[in-house]
Each structure stands twice: as structure tokens, then as C-alpha cells.
Design a binder for these strands. Structure first.
Length: 822
RNA sequence: GGGCGGAUAGCUCAGCUGGUUAGAGCACCUCGUUUACACCGAGGGGGUCGGGGGUUCGAAUCCCUCUCCGCCCA
């Protein structure tokens, strides 16, 4: 029974308890139905979830529910991305420790504890929103299965020659002291000084009096200067090429070389090359086979090469050496400029380039193939595919996957101490959690040595999260009890990580299977706050906490908000949407309570009465709504679908149909029995239809209605397992709809008259005459009784007026009924 | 500088394979408690669809251009 007012607090909990107890959302491993699998993004366990998570995850959840109601076997797992740097940094912050300053085992244990705690919190939020995930399929990227599959993925790539180890200048973060990948960079505008420095030219044995001027933002790197470059077409090129210059304050003479990468417009058109100030330096170092003079160490401090500035951090060294350059007269000028620098997204620190040995996955050699794969995938909205393509085409580096960190998936690899030959773990050893648990008994096949050194680096988080389809499919596992086939059906994710998560996943899938990882990608937008600002943790401008949202507005209203956007578009947070969602739930609750009073003891299967035109018309409208909503949901446009459904429910079912059938419903006389039965059947059908349509959006309130009014007769345990309603129009749809339209036109005319004349809708009218256009005049009679009921008219006269448009109605006269005697 | 979006009512957004007087919700104004619902109902005001060109019988919709905003890259 539906009793009292709509109360999401009790109703949400009851629905969720039912789903849990009945296992409603279990993936059915024995089913032969078509599988719809979703590669859910495992949220990063890095502190707190914000409303952006609720926004995008709910959008995918809506699709899961829709597909399930279409009869598909929905594989909808949940995962958590808890390995890697984000968890390390959270743990370091919470415990006031530094991973590199404590024993590795102890730090890893702390990380595990931290991630387990947050995981619990995360799961509680998703459950409170009514997510229809199969919680038995949950994974975490640091659990044994994920590690095993991640390592299997690495070994597969290694065996296929898709992974290599290489010492080269690598993107390096000096705060976390690890290599990072291109995708983890952000560019930031910084105010800095461009310094004009005098470099004296040397000829023969010494300075000959001539000099050149070089502009640099990084004078601290003078100690690492290895060459000077000039554009071959620079006016001074002919005279300077082949000469040498003395680096100010350093005991270094470097050659002046030509390269067309020098921008002749920038600075003086002559630049120094240091190892390494930026990416161009790296390119020149490799192309011109320059010396290596490493000025900055792994910890961001200057090396001994810096002389007096050794051990200072780069920015301190910059100040110090500028003082010395001023004193020595080498600093000729300074200008404040805005300079775009690359920083590591996790720390905000400027990236350095350090020559270190790292593991790389080959991507540059397969750009064309990756573009092609991207075109095989259906991107929703389509323009997101262009972003992927744009990223792939702009790649400059292979994918560096090794990190000099602690809490991550170990490389299942050892090196021969004698010859650095690589030993890879056999399959039976996976997961390799601790290298010391395994003993290599064979001698090195290359040098015969017997001493092996484990690889202590760990894999970057993305190296594992790029394997989520494989983790879901339980790729390579001995007995896959609930695996889904690959490629999966759909990947939901936000647009900012197309360049990372989507891209890396496609790379891995290509390497492992030569195929796409999923057929569809559903790309959601971001939540913004007033003024189209990005929500960011650092600004602390999140309008609300997701848990508060659910608590204050209910799960369904929260979902309603998230499902009000169009796919891929950023959406400004608005509390109005939450209120509107709540209103919809209240409306559905109240309409259902009305239905409940009239459907007591009603047996749908025993109905013999023929439907009246309005009953057929509302069924027709329902079918049309189903058709439209399905088309939108098929293309992942949940927001449009929701609008269509809402319009049907509120604007047609509540505002007109319920009003029109009220008299019939309340009429318990024997003469009215048949008309009443037809009305009850109509009410039953359209309400049952509309709660099913709304279930992907507001599953809790629709579940309450289903359990109270439909479960006994329909049989299915949950509305979430009920079949999606049919889009097939009933017999006589066209005539009925014409009659309905005529009736609504008359009804609207009477309502307008009441409003203009300030006559309460409740006051009965004894007689109303309207003039009507041809169409209305022809059809109105068929629905006259129901219109009279809704409009509270005793006698209705419709006269055709050829001067009116066919669908128009003009009220001619209306008479108030005598007020009842006091 | 390049790529991709966006700019429509006070606010948040639909509409954009060109075609009746450009829509919705909220907000605002007027009226009204009928036995599902005042978290309601009825009615109403409010927009030269960012600016400027062009194509067309006809443009919010297509083309060009400019301005501003967001994301990604350089």
C-alpha cells in the first residue's frame, strides 16, 4: 500500500533492500540473452567524491537500467582505482609521512588501509543512489586479480615486442621523484623573467672581444649548456656558425650550431641548449649527439656541475646565479614575460627532463592504426572521436609506464646482475606481489650468471586501468566464472580523460587482441558552477557534497538532476533541477495513490469492456512516448528521453487523462460498470507503462509504486526486471487521437474562460456552448462525456464554425449552475 | 598558434538533416483550494536566438567572419 506522503528516506532504503535481497541486478552467467557490458570507470580513491562523479556515473547507470529492461543480460561491474600515486599522496597527507622515507612494506600497508577505508565510503554513495551494479563483480586495481591481469598484460606486450626499456631523457617530477607520462602534464602560465646574457665568442685560444646575446628564462642551467643554436637563415648565421662561445661563469666552451627549430622571432634568435631545459633541448641532444651535462638531480636540486649553486633548488639557483651574472656584467637586460610551462598535474611542479632508465610501451609506431581503431568505435557524441584522433596524431613520446614509486603493480621482471638480461615471470608466478617470494633457479641464458636483481619500479596506474576490459573479462584467468566477452559493449567516461584512459585502453586492446576494446563510448560532460566555472578541489567551489545531496533531496531527485543534461555537454549545477526531480516523484506518488484507490480488487486479465476513445488515445500517446524515448536512450540521450517521458506523464496523463476518467472511476452504478472497467484498464496500463519508462531515471519511487500496485498481477520481482513497454499503437489509434485532441481543445477553452472570468475550476457549469473548427466538430462527440467530466459541465454543445481553423475552439457561452441551497 | 565544443527568455537548458506566431522548467504576475497532489491547478507577461556579412522564396538552424567562454594540445 502507498500511504502518507512521498518520503524518499524510507522509500529509497526499502527499494534498495529489495534489490539486494532478491539479487535483482545480478549478472546472469547462464543466460543466453544478448549481453550488454559496461566498462565502468573505477573512480580514483583519492579522498572525496564530488558531484561530478554523481553526474557522469548516474548517466551510465540510467543506460544500464534501460538495457536491462530491454531484456539484455547486463554486465555492470563496479571497480575502484586505488593503486598508484593518488593513493600514495593521500596516504602521505593523512599520515604525515613520505613513502620514500619509510620501509616499503610499511608504506604499502598504510596505502592499503587508506584505500580500503575510502572504498567503503565510495561504495556506500553509489548504493545510496540506487546503482544497479552487480556488486559481486566489484574489483579494485590493487587486488590480486587486477594485478595478475595487469602483469599478464605487460608480459603479453613484452612477448610481442611492444614494450622496451630505454635510458633517455624522461619527463620527471622532482617532488614525487618519479618519471611521468606525457598525458599527465598540464600547461600553466607563469610570470618569469627573460634574461639577456652575454656570451663571449672564443677564437683560437681565448676571448676575442666579440660576443652574442642569448635570452633565457633558465639561467641556472648555464652549467648544463652543451651547445648554442641559431636558425640557418639568421642574418648572423654565416658569420657565427663554426665558432665557439664561452658560457658565462662556467668553464665551458660550446659550439654554435644551426637548426631550423630555432624561432628567429623569439628573443635574439640565438638560443642555448642545456641538458635539459625543455623538450627542444631533448630533441637537439638526440639529433646532434650532444654531450650530457646534467644540471639538475632527481630531487630537483642542482648537481655539482652548478658550482656555487650546487644543492640549491632550481628556483633558488636561478636567483643566486642572476646575482653573480649581474656582478660579472653578463646580464645585459631583463624583461618580465608570461611563459607557458609544463607542470605535473598531481603536484603542480614544473617538469624536468632527466636521463633515466624507464619502461615504455610503443605507441608512436602505431599511430595510424590507433586512429583507424578510433574510427571503428562509435563515439557518443560523435565529435568526441575527433578529440581522440587529435590526441593520437599529436603524440611525441612512447608511453612511459614505469614509476619510481611504491604502491603499484610490480613489474614481473628480474635483471641478470652480470649482463642485464631480462627474466620475465612465468604465468604460474602471477601475481608477483613481492619479488623475494620467487627464486630463479636457471642460470642466465645469455651470460650464465646466477645472480638476479628484481625490478623495483612499479607500473603507473594507467598501465593497469587501461586493462579494465581485460579485468572485467577475466582475461587469461583459469576459470572465468562470470566473464563477459570482449570487446565490451560500452565504455562510459568523461571527456577530459579521452587522452588517457580511453587512449591507453585502446592501445592495450590493440596489442593484446588487435581489436577495439568496446563498441561504444559514452562521453559525459563536466559539472560546472555558476558562471561556467570548473569545479576544482583547489578552489573549493563545489556547491554541495554528494552525500548531502542524496540526504536532502532523495536518491531519485539527485538522479533526476544528473540526468537532465545532454550527453557530452558540461552542465551548470542548479538546485532547481533537484527540486524539479522531487516534484516529479511527489506527482508520481500522488497519481499512484489515486490509482490505488480505484484499482483495489481490479483484475486486469479479466477485462472485457471495450476501451473508450480517450482510453485508446492515452495508450497511443504512451506508445508514441515509448518510441521516442527509446530512440533517444538508444543514442545515450537520457536527458531528452526524460523530457519526453515527463511531458507524457505530467502534461497528458495527469493533467488531462486522469481528469477525464474521474467520473467513470467514481461511478459505481451498474449502468456505469463497463465504462468504469474501461477506465480502470486504461489507468492500469498507462500507469504501469509510465513507471517502467521512469525506472531508469527514478527507480526508487517507481519500485514503490510497482510493488504496491503491479507486483501481484505482473509477477516480476522488481520493476527493474520488468519488460520495457511496447511502442506499438493500439487499434483505432488515429480516430481516438483525433477525438482526444478535439476534447483537449474544448477542455482548454473552458479552462481559459474560467481563468479569465475568475471562475473556480471547481464550480460546476450547467451549460457550455462552443464553436469549433471542422476537425474538432467532427470528433468532439466521441469524447464529450469525458470532457464534460473533466470540465465540470452538465451540458456541452459543440457547433461547427467554418470560419475557424480545423483544430480551433471558441467558447460561445457558459452558464454557472445554480449554487446549491445553503 | 592548433583541435573540439559552447554563446537561445532574469536563471538552467531544449530546438539546429532550413519551413506555421522560437519551446520547457524555475523565477515573475493574475486567478483558484474539486474528495491524488499547494512539492497543486488554470491563465499570462517576457527572447531583434552573441555581433556582422552571405546563400535562399524562407535561417536560431547552412556558409564566411569577428567577439567572448570552456576543455585539450602547442
Amino acid at each position: 500500500m502507498l500511504e502518507g506522503k512521498y518520503n524518499p528516506e524510507t522509500l529509497d532504503a526499502a527499494a534498495q533492500a529489495l534489490w539486494e535481497a532478491e539479487g535483482v541486478h545480478r549478472y546472469d552467467r547462464d543466460s543466453t540473452a544478448e549481453i550488454y557490458s559496461i566498462d565502468t570507470p573505477p573512480p580514483t580513491v583519492s579522498g572525496s567524491q564530488h558531484i561530478g562523479h554523481v553526474f557522469s556515473y548516474t548517466q551510465a547507470e540510467c543506460i544500464a537500467r534501460y538495457q536491462r529492461m530491454l531484456g539484455k543480460n547486463v554486465f555492470y561491474p563496479f571497480g575502484f582505482d586505488d593503486n598508484g600515486l593518488p593513493t600514495e599522496r593521500l596516504t602521505e597527507k593523512e599520515h604525515g609521512v613520505l613513502g620514500r622515507e619509510m620501509p616499503r612494506e610499511a608504506f604499502v600497508a598504510l596505502c592499503r588501509e587508506t584505500s580500503a577505508r575510502y572504498k567503503k565510503e565510495f561504495e556506500a554513495l553509489w548504493r545510496s543512489l540506487g546503482f544497479s551494479s552487480d556488486w559481486s563483480l566489484v574489483y579494485s586495481t590493487i587486488d590480486e586479480r587486477a594485478i595478475r591481469i595487469s602483469q599478464r598484460g605487460f608480459l603479453d606486450a613484452y612477448a610481442k615486442d611492444q614494450v622496451y626499456q630505454h635510458t633517455s631523457p624522461t619527463l620527471w617530477d622532482t617532488e614525487t621523484q618519479t618519471a611521468v607520462a606525457q598525458a599527465e602534464l598540464e600547461s600553466k602560465d607563469k610570470r618569469t623573467k627573460m634574461n639577456d646574457l652575454r656570451f663571449d665568442l672564443v677564437a683560437g685560444g681565448g676571448v676575442d672581444g666579440g660576443h652574442i646575446v642569448i635570452a633565457t628564462t633558465r639561467p641556472e642551467l648555464l652549467c648544463a649548456c652543451v651547445a648554442i643554436f641559431i636558425h640557418p637563415k639568421h642574418p648572423q648565421a654565416a658569420e657565427l656558425l663554426g665558432q665557439k662561445a664561452k658560457v658565462p661563469l662556467q668553464d665551458i666552451e660550446v659550439e654554435i650550431l644551426a637548426d631550423d627549430k630555432v624561432d628567429p622571432e623569439k628573443g635574439t634568435g640565438i638560443v642555448m641548449c642545456c641538458t635539459f631545459g625543455d623538450k627542444t633541448d631533448v630533441e637537439w641532444y638526440q639529433k646532434h649527439r650532444l654531450d650530457l651535462r646534467q644540471g639538475i638531480g632527481r630531487d630537483g636540486r642542482m648537481t655539482d656541475l652548478a658550482g656555487p649553486e650546487a644543492n640549491l633548488f632550481a628556483n633558488q639557483a636561478r636567483r643566486a646565479i642572476l646575482e653573480r651574472l649581474t656582478e660579472s656584467g653578463h646580464l645585459l637586460g631583463q624583461e618580465e614575460i608570461a611563459n607557458a610551462v609544463n607542470v605535473f598535474e598531481k603536484t603542480g611542479r614544473e617538469i624536468e627532463f632527466l636521463p633515466t632508465k624507464q619502461w615504455f610501451i610503443k605507441v608512436l609506431d602505431k599511430k595510424a592504426k590507433l586512429v583507424e581503431l578510433g574510427e571503428k568505435i562509435r563515439w557518443h557524441p560523435t565529435h568526441m572521436g575527433k578529440r581522440y584522433r587529435n590526441w593520437v596524431e599529436g603524440l611525441d613520446w612512447d608511453w612511459c609506464i614505469s614509476r619510481q614509486r611504491f604502491f603499484g603493480v610490480p613489474f614481473p621482471v628480474w635483471f641478470c646482475e652480470g649482463c642485464e638480461h631480462v627474466f620475465t615471470a612465468p604465468e604460474a608466478w602471477l601475481p608477483v606481489l613481492d619479488h623475494s617470494n620467487h627464486e630463479i633457479t636457471d642460470p642466465c641464458p645469455s651470460c650464465g650468471g646466477t645472480s638476479w636483481r628484481p625490478e623495483n619500479d612499479v607500473m603507473d596506474t594507467w598501465a593497469t586501468s587501461s586493462e579494465t576490459p581485460e579485468i572485467n573479462a577475466q582475461w587469461g584467468e583459469p576459470t572465468p566464472p562470470d566473464a563477459c566477452p570482449l570487446p565490451m559493449t560500452m565504455r562510459p567516461q568523461a571527456h577530459d580523460i579521452i587522452r588517457t584512459w580511453a587512449f591507453y585502453t585502446i592501445v592495450k586492446s590493440w596489442i593484446h587482441f588487435g581489436d577495439i576494446p568496446w563498441a561504444d563510448v559514452m562521453v559525459s560532460g563536466h559539472v560546472q558552477v555558476g558562471g561556467r566555472k570548473k569545479i576544482s578541489k583547489s578552489k573549493g567551489n563545489a556547491p554541495t557534497d554528494p552525500n548531502d545531496m542524496v540526504r536532502d533531496h532523495g536518491a531519485d531527485a539527485t538522479r533526476y538532476w544528473a540526468l537532465s543534461a545532454t550527453l557530452g555537454n558540461d552542465y551548470v549545477y542548479s538546485e532547481d533541477d533537484l527540486k524539479q526531480g522531487r516534484r516529479l516523484c511527489v506527482k508520481l506518488w500522488n497519481a499512484s495513490k489515486l490509482a490505488q484507490t480505484h484499482l483495489q480488487g481490479f483484475d486486469r486479465s479479466a477485462v472485457t469492456a471495450a476501451p473508450l476513445p480517450v482510453d485508446t488515445a492515452i495508450r497511443t500517446s504512451l506508445a508514441d512516448t515509448v518510441r521516442k524515448a527509446s530512440l533517444d536512450l538508444d543514442r545515450y540521450e537520457f536527458g531528452i528521453a526524460k523530457g519526453v517521458i515527463e511531458q507524457f506523464f505530467w502534461g497528458e496523463l495527469c493533467d488531462n487523462y486522469l481528469e477525464m476518467i474521474k467520473n467513470r472511476l467514481y461511478d459505481e452504478s451498474p449502468e456505469g460498470a463497463e465504462a468504469r472497467e474501461a477506465a480502470r484498464a486504461g489507468l492500469y496500463d498507462v500507469l504501469y507503462g509510465v513507471i517502467r519508462l521512469l525506472t531508469p531515471f527514478t527507480p526508487h519511487v517507481t519500485e514503490a509504486v510497482y510493488q504496491a500496485l503491479f507486483r501481484a498481477s505482473e509477477g516480476t520481482t522488481s520493476v527493474g526486471k520488468a519488460p520495457w513497454p511496447s511502442a506499438e499503437a493500439p487499434e483505432g489509434a488515429n480516430e481516438a487521437t483525433a477525438a482526444w485532441d478535439a476534447g483537449v481543445s474544448v477542455l482548454t477553452a473552458v479552462r481559459r474562460w474560467r481563468s479569465e472570468e475568475k471562475v473556480s475550476p471547481g464550480k460546476p457549469l450547467s451549460r457550455v456552448e462552443v464553436r469549433a473548427g471542422a476537425d474538432v466538430a467532427a470528433s468532439a462527440a466521441a469524447v464529450a462525456e469525458d470532457v464534460k467530466a473533466a470540465a465540470r459541465i452538465a451540458e456541452l454543445v459543440v457547433t461547427e464554425d467554418e470560419s475557424l481553423d480545423p483544430g480551433a475552439v471558441a467558447l460561445q457561452s457558459a452558464e454557472l449552475a445554480e449554487p446549491p441551497a445553503a
